[in-house]
Simulated assay, not measured.
Amino acid sequence: MVVLPGRRRGFEARLERGALVLKTPASDRRIPLTAIERTETPGAGGRSFTVVLTAPRTIRPTSWTVHGRRAPAVEAFADALQRRLPVRDAAELRADGALLVTETPVAKPPADRHRTASRVAVALYLLAAAAMSAAGFLGSYGWFVALICWLFGSLAIPMRHFVCGGWEFTGDTWRLRTHGVLVEGRRLYAGAYEYTDLEGRGRRLTGTSEYAEQAEILYDPEGRTEAQVGRGTTGTLVFAVFVLIVSLAMTAALVALALAGPLGAWGVISFSLV
């Protein structure tokens, strides 16, 4: 399959077995190669070509123009398409190729509210930074300090992932501690064990650092958390809680710093130690 990215996002041409597929954000148009008479290069710097369908002599043939981003890619795609077209006699009667074309509407995916909220948050964040920069250049130099605090506080965004990871780590460890079942596992190879659960099904645990021929495996019967070698969960739980608390504290401190800068520039709070 040969793919030609379109000039605009969501547009694409695909040369599949026996068909040319023109994809748009709204529909997929499938054109059998037997319905194509020839390809033509209309110009536009070599970044487009035209697909002309077969048609009887009495009617005007249907055609579509395919646009690409780069001229060499368009030329290579058009040549590949032309080579796959059937060879016809000039005197051969032509059918209307447009009748063989099928068009399928593309179902729009549901709106991703999380992505939309993230984009709005980023836009507001950049707008606030731009406003602080403008206020600093206009003479309110305290806004430069506020901008530095705002930018440094933006480290809370990646720290949020550590908070979520620590929370999941803590929850998984606690579930394994309270709902886990202990069985005996047999070593398959370095770092991998197999064991049988309570229902008689064989399972595997990989990525461990154990090398004993037999080991105790603690697993979750519902499969919501990953199993572990050994029955001890106290140390892991303490470490998970520690990671969660540290991540949460650092994130809160960065958010407080980001907000303290603008509030200080507005005079809402004061950093004076006197």
Rank of each mutant, 00 (worst) to 15 (best):
A80M: 02
A260L: 12
L273Y: 04
T50A: 10
A90F: 14
F169T: 07
F152C: 14
T24A: 11
A55H: 02
P32N: 10
G235A: 03
A130H: 01
G43H: 00
I245E: 05
T62Y: 13
E168A: 08
A128P: 03
A227N: 06
P86I: 12
A130C: 04
I148D: 10
G166H: 06
H179D: 10
V3P: 04
D197L: 08
E103P: 06
A212W: 00
R47W: 04
L182K: 04
F239I: 12
A135G: 13
R177D: 15
V246I: 15
E40H: 07
V87P: 03
T65K: 14
A130Q: 01
A215Y: 02
A265T: 00
V274S: 07
A26C: 03
D197A: 12
K23I: 15
R94K: 07
R160N: 12
L81T: 12
P61V: 07
P158W: 01
F77L: 00
R38E: 11
L188T: 00
S270D: 09
V241T: 06
A146Y: 01
L85P: 09
Y211A: 10
R224C: 03
A134R: 07
W167Y: 13
G139C: 03
R47S: 14
L182Y: 04
A256S: 08
R224K: 10
V74K: 05
V238D: 05
R88K: 12
G261W: 04
R8A: 11
H161D: 13
V21P: 04
C164E: 11
S140R: 15
F242N: 07
L124Q: 02
T54F: 00
K23H: 13
L182T: 04
V274T: 08
R177S: 15
R70E: 14
R186N: 07
A76Y: 00
S209Q: 09
G153M: 09
Q214H: 07
R186K: 10
R14N: 05
S272C: 05
E213S: 15
